[in-house]
């Protein structure tokens, strides 16, 4: 269990690794920015495998509900047996943890997980987009924000990569939406470099476009922002 705690704690740690893909060059042709994000309220159910070596160490079920209009996200993590260990949601007004069992009961864990989900499923907030090519020739759209910047890159295999960098240029997260799938979110790989390096492989079980259901946060309750 301690290893599970350690693994999941690592999920929210931001590790340091010097980035080497941070120089933009002027493109020779126009660049379009990848936009895999859902345009309507959508729900995704993934099987999530957690890796620290070449072999998976554990597996969970994750449910993600995103609303691009209100920029709201909700997420639940369940064991394979269906026991919900975490239910959390976020709107621009704040975050609400409706259920969190140890070792996932840290607000920091919930906040960082929601940040990752927003990076993957919601278009960047920043409208200040820089377009160019990286040193390796791949086209990139760069979105600066107060924490650093996000690069959205056309991967060589046709997929899409999200790379989150800190202000100092350290790569903190790398996410790949694997190409070849019928849904952009059918196969997702999350990689966190550094001392607590780990990988998540997410395989889509089911996706739904939602109706008018309400998001989890109670409008009468305050948030953490």
């Amino acid at each position: 269990m301690k290893r599970l705690i350690w693994l999941l704690a690592a999920f929210l740690s931001v590790s340091c690794q010097t980035g080497h893909e941070i120089q933009l060059r002027q493109p020779k042709q126009s660049i379009y920015c990848p936009c895999p994000y859902p345009q309507t309220k959508s729900r995704f159910i993934h099987a999530i495998e957690v890796y620290r070596s070449s072999e998976a160490q554990t597996a969970l079920i994750g449910v993600t509900l995103v609303d691009p209009v209100s920029r709201s996200v909700s997420c639940a993590l369940m064991s394979a047996e269906g026991m919900a260990v975490l239910e959390v949601s976020s709107t621009p007004a704040g975050m609400e943890i409706s259920r969190a069992l140890p070792p996932l009961d840290s607000p920091n864990f919930a906040r960082n997980m929601l940040d990752d989900i927003e990076m993957i499923f919601l278009a960047p907030r920043s409208t200040d987009v820089q377009k160019g090519t990286l040193a390796d020739g791949r086209q990139v759209c760069r979105y600066p924000d107060e924490d650093g910047w996000l690069d959205v890159v056309h991967a060589e295999d046709g997929g899409i990569e999200f790379k989150r960098y800190t202000k100092t240029g350290s790569l903190s997260r790398s996410v790949t939406l694997v190409d070849g799938a019928s849904n952009s979110y059918e196969a997702i790989e999350v990689s966190v470099p550094g001392i607590f390096r780990y990988r998540l492989k997410m395989s889509l079980i089911e996706t739904q476009t939602s109706g008018d259901e309400l998001f989890a946060p109670d409008s009468n309750k305050g948030g953490d922002k």
Partner: peptide, 9 residues
């Protein structure tokens, strides 16, 4: 059944 699910898993 969960609030986040529109139909049960």
């Amino acid at each position: 059944h969960m609030k986040i699910l529109s139909r049960p898993l």
